[in-house]
Amino acid sequence: MTTDFDVIIIGGGPTGLAAAVYTGRSLLKTLVLEKGVPGGQIVFSAAIDNYPGFPDGISGYDFTDAFLRHAKRFGAEIRTGLGAASITKNEDGSFTIGLTDGKSVTGKSVILATGRHPRKLDVPGYDEYFGGGVSVCGTCDGAFFKNQPMAVVGGGNSAVEEGFFLTRYASDIKSIHRRDHFTAQKILIEEYTHAPNVTPVWNSVVEEIYGKANGPQKEVTGIRVRDTKTDKVSEFDVNAVFVFIGWLPNSDLAKDMPGVKLDEENRIIGNELMETGVAGLYAAGDVCVRPIYQLANVVADGVQAAVSVEKYLDSLKNK
């Protein structure tokens, strides 16, 4: 089996980069493909306060930068802005990865560390005003709305954490959630709900985002919200709508591969060794079924996947 790489890691977030540190240290020729930016979702985080070992917190950018340098130090090749378009298992057991630029690379093994992407709000105005006030990144876009009214949609860890970050900019935050309480970590809820400029709007869903447009320039001016218990509809004047309503797994690449199992939410079902049903193909991190999705455990997933790859490649040599 002659291939370009020993292992191809698809996804350059914390899982993929953790795997790359370990495969690099095992002297495996390693390629990491990242279609977006290194770090994936974690680079959107203004401050990571729950990763053990960083008592003062660390920004998503600094964390990712350190991780990247760590993976590169042990020899991983990291290509950014370039993704995998297809995975093919070859007759000799190796894999061919079709790339989004039309080229392809081959590897003896593959780790899927493709992560998740934010769920869109399926209402009129979301796509139209994305970038014109509709956002999924508080650290990127909060500063554009200093002293302006905002809406935050969602009630989990991401919504509450990002919402709290946005309290430093907003004149007022309407925090819209379909339940009657937040489901985030307690310390995050405490911080957020004690901020003077946050008003929770419980049992409510956004029905429309509206605004004004001038060619490619878009500007949100308000949202229409429905109370699901009373059906009462309210309108709020806001200039920004930050949406954090959950995540969807990036499992499209593997979903049609014979042997790969997905659950009803399209998450990959693996085992504790990060094996899929396909020899040499591993899946780790946020793309998989997990009881929790925290930085520390997706990093551990990457480490396990790397060790499993090393054992798999050893077994090929002994055949």
Partner: peptide, 17 residues
């Protein structure tokens, strides 16, 4: 003149841009 704009991280930016 502005001819195209992308907001956010474009997927596959190498190819897209």
């Amino acid at each position: 003149q502005e001819v195209e704009r992308r907001v956010g991280i474009p997927p596959n930016a190498n190819v897209e841009l």
